[in-house]
Computed example of a mutant assay.
Amino acid sequence: MYITISPQKIGPAFSSSVADFVDYLEKENTDRLPEAQEYFFNQTQEKITRDKVIKEIDGNTAKLKTTEPRYYSLTINPSQKELQHIKNDPEKLKVYTREVMKDYAASFNREINGRPVQVSDIKYYAKMEFSRTYKERDKEVRENAPFNNKIAQLKNELRKVQRGEITGHPHNIRKEILALQKEAPHKIEGKLIDEGTPKQGNQTHLHLIVSRKDQSNTVSLSPGSKYKASEVSLHGKIVKRGFDRDRFFEKAEKTFDQQFNYKRNFVEQYNARKTYLQSPQKYYSMILKLPTNERKVAMGILNTGVSKIPDARIRFAVKQFQKAIELGLKSSSIGY
């Protein structure tokens, strides 16, 4: 499970309204009939319209400065392995999302009217999406880029030859294009992956728009706080503040596992990803100490990128992992 939290983009180049973001999230509805469209939902309601989301989020910004985000964007990104486990069931993901928002509320070190923050205090709207496309930053697009660029140049040259604008041999140009297409590393059904190419497999994920202010429009709840838990004097009163991201990510992961009886491998765990970023050597060591079956599963997950370690690091991790296993086998420290 990979969850992100991002603040609203602010500044002269960005709208203060949530409307642009809402319209972006409506993109999958463009070619659907009304009865097939996907609506927003929240903790207690279904089929919430675009207009209501914009009105509620834009109208819930009391006393916020122009330099402060008015809302936060959360994404809930189950891996294909997790989606397969729940049979890619949208209703199960809705139930899970509502449980995640309970975890979100509980991760605030704040009180409202003398009690901890509850999910009923959070104003949010969630939207489920079922497809993804490759982006410019994706490994497949980056590694295919030299081939796609050269092919585009050759196709342009071929058109000029056919129009008689330049001299050349169309057969040779086509032959060179075919060679590049064959050599390119990443393809789907024979076609080169490029920016905008749809990704294969189950790609169901969720976007959430979460208001910075609580339901009453009086309390500011920022998951972007740099404090996990602290207290500060405000107008002569001691006020708690902070949001514990580690607690939130860990709890959301455990919620999925408990709710769906999911057996999470070490490399799928949030704490494992943190360990890798802090100490790759310790990470590899922990993998090598896994039971044989779990170690084999870990290797397969690393190869498919389910662990959500950045692409370049996945490749490096797999190579290091393979070397470590080979060394361990030679020294008889591990076995299959």
Rank of each mutant, 00 (worst) to 15 (best):
K228S: 08
K228P: 00
A229E: 13
A229H: 07
S230V: 11
S230H: 11
S230A: 11
E231R: 12
E231W: 08
V232L: 06
V232Q: 09
S233Q: 15
L234Y: 14
L234W: 12
L234Q: 07
L234M: 08
H235W: 11
G236R: 11
K237W: 09
K237A: 04
K237N: 12
K237I: 10
K237S: 08
I238G: 01
V239L: 10
V239S: 04
V239I: 15
R241G: 08
R241P: 00
R241W: 10
G242V: 13
G242N: 06
F243W: 12
F243G: 07
D244I: 13
R245Y: 10
D246F: 07
D246G: 15
D246Q: 14
R247M: 15
F248Q: 04
F248H: 07
F248W: 11
F249L: 12
F249W: 08
F249I: 04
F249A: 04
F249Y: 14
F249H: 10
E250G: 02
K251G: 06
K251R: 14
K251V: 06
A252C: 15
A252N: 05
A252F: 06
K254F: 11
K254P: 07
T255G: 09
T255W: 06
T255C: 09
F256L: 06
F256C: 04
F256D: 02
F256E: 02
D257M: 07
Q258V: 09
Q258G: 13
Q258F: 10
F260I: 02
F260W: 06
N261H: 15
N261I: 04
Y262W: 05
Y262K: 04
Y262G: 05
K263H: 13
K263M: 07
K263D: 10
R264N: 01
R264L: 01
N265V: 04
F266Y: 12
F266R: 04
F266I: 02
V267E: 01
Q269F: 00
Q269K: 15
Q269Y: 00
Y270F: 08
Y270E: 02
Y270C: 00
Y270V: 01
Y270Q: 02
N271S: 14
